[in-house]
Design a protein around this nucleic acid. Structure first.
Lengths: 337, 337
DNA sequence: CGTGATGATGACCACGTTTGCATACTCGGC
DNA sequence: GCCGAGTATGCAAACGTGGTCATCATCACG
């Protein structure tokens, strides 16, 4: 069916080895032989069979990507970055969605481990020891998750949370709620820890931990009433989706954002500019995050001897929109009550 | 390195053929032999090499998916559906993003054609003849695009547009604008044609075609001023993102939605419930759309002899939210002017 | 007890490519 | 003019699996 190297060899009047060399090591061939082979290959539409190549080289030319939820804009963007960069480097991308289920992640890696040269795991929910075990079975790069000295693309959560909290403090807020994501989420724990550390620097400021919620809009809706009851004048949400849920529930309860309560999200997804009110958010260029992940993995595959530990930090930036405002003075609060 | 069938054979004291048969045709083996082989395979952690298998069978156990933009929530959802269903059927998914560039689509298909058993193309922008040519090179299934008798998962655009327009007509709107998507988009043309046909049924109603815009929020922002100038009291947007752009620009210009102008989107993406005002939209369960695409492709691969033409229609449903309202009477319009 | 049928299993080739090694050929220097 | 060095190319093995065919054992039946 498909045209093989043998066909090219026959037509060009050379051996199969020469055809192979024409593509893998052109310098080893006489210029006129090279030209002849390349020309007939082009004419016949020859395309090397990746399975046969992979069988002998052990490389597949493909990398894997595992994300918790493809529908989440955060992971969509990362996926786009990984895909673009991998393709530019000549790699294909096979994708898998763990549906936010930590126990699936390891299975997915093992399922695809024979078909890929390495795997990028984005925001994995699995515990450290599971990830460490996976790293011994395949070349693994983490995105948005630190685990020992495994190669990782990290986001400086401390800096991001600091940007958000200092913004709120500058607006006069002194009681700030944290609306958390999944308890198994590494970035959630990192952000909570960061928030505690930053608040600890300011004796006049208090952090109220409202607990863990689903990383979706529904999670924010569920947390809305707790936020109102907490007495906090501002909230930092685990991510923008949760923040949207908060906005929705607060509006429903008749609580004004930002007049009564300020809300800050994390991720700065494209939709943040369009909510009502438009969401103040700290975020990073997510596509870059994916790009960096693919780059690290590819360079690891190309130079297996290089030090396996490689951390790459990306910076947050604060985008102020309409969901944050100066804290109302107590009097004006009493006015509306 | 990795444990091969030969290793299992040696340990189990059987031949390589027997190991192969244990997995591919268990019925041909004596029960005790089967048990022994399976047990040692499990013990040794044997996993067949997909490259070697693919080399001989010609099948890869992988399907391809090509979408115009991974960051677009529409395609994210479809991707999720395709991925979930493919994996359930034992197939991996390699993904590629054409960046809305029609000329890239064919290249992408050809690039991956040797590594996959078939390809799902979602909303391809390429012309019919290009798609027909691709279908001769690989097993192709289209989603949200009709092209001759190629197998496709289709959305009944006529019905969807009818739902939207009849909703607006029922609210009293008689001059309705259509804010189009890319000119190369098949679904855009289908929707415009559908809108014209439906309006033609009602002599008292007029359709204003505002032209083609980018299928992003920016496209809607660009179209906003044209909409205001058009004199239409309602607009149907190519998709929800464009509708968001419209909402944004209209708000900026001081035009009230839905009081002055009603807006309807298409796709009903999750974010539609959260915009301000919440967007009335006609949509289909997008994840199902992806699922259907994967199902059609898998069944085509499993039963190559079945009639290759297979159309699968999915229905729209109208979700009414806050961006549509009865048309203001001329007097009240004059009042505000 | 012999013969044919049935069923289980092993030996071997093929798939398409890469790669080490052998070989033939070229060219420069003495 | 011959030899060594270097270079271009062919040969053949190997990667791990699936499938075909032959072989051998077992068993039923005549």
């Amino acid at each position: 069916m498909a045209v093989s190297a043998r066909d090219v060899a026959r037509v060009a009047g050379v051996s199969v080895s020469t055809v192979s060399r024409a593509l893998s090591r052109p310098d080893d061939l006489a210029p006129e032989t090279l030209a002849k082979v390349l020309e007939t290959a082009r004419m016949l539409g020859y395309r090397p069979n990746p399975a046969a190549r992979g069988l002998i080289t052990g490389r597949t030319g493909t990398i894997g990507l595992i994300v918790p939820d493809l529908e989440n804009p955060f992971f969509s963007s990362v996926t786009k970055g990984v895909q673009a960069r991998a393709r530019a480097a000549g790699y294909g991308v096979v994708i898998a969605d763990s549906d936010e289920d930590p126990s699936q992640e390891a299975d997915l890696v093992r399922e695809m481990s024979r078909q890929v040269d390495g795997v990028v795991m984005c925001s994995p929910r699995s515990p450290d020891d599971v990830l460490a075990a996976l790293a011994t079975e395949t070349t693994l790069v983490l995105v948005n998750r630190r685990c020992g000295s495994l190669p990782a693309v990290l986001i400086d959560n401390l800096e991001g949370v600091r940007l958000a909290l200092e913004h709120l403090r500058a607006l006069g807020h002194r009681t700030i709620a944290y609306v958390g994501g999944p308890a198994t989420s590494w970035s959630n724990r990192a952000r909570l820890t960061a928030a505690r550390a930053i608040v600890a620097e300011h004796p006049d400021t208090e952090l109220v931990d409202l607990g863990s919620f689903q990383p979706y809009v529904s999670g924010g809706i569920a947390a809305g009433d707790l936020l109102i009851a907490s007495g906090a004048s501002a909230a930092l949400a685990y991510n923008d989706l949760v923040a949207f849920g908060l906005l929705d529930r607060l509006k429903q309860r008749g609580v004004q954002v930002p007049d009564d309560i300020s809300v800050v999200g994390v991720d700065n997804i494209p939709m943040s500019a369009l909510s009502s009110p438009a969401l103040t958010s700290v975020g990073i260029p997510l596509v870059n995050c994916g790009r960096a992940g693919a780059d690290v993995l590819v360079s690891l595959l190309r130079h297996p001897d290089q030090p396996p530990t490689h951390h790459h930090d990306l910076s947050f930036q604060l985008v102020v929109r309409d969901s944050t405002a100066p804290r109302r003075s107590s009097e004006s609060l009493r006015d509306t009550a």
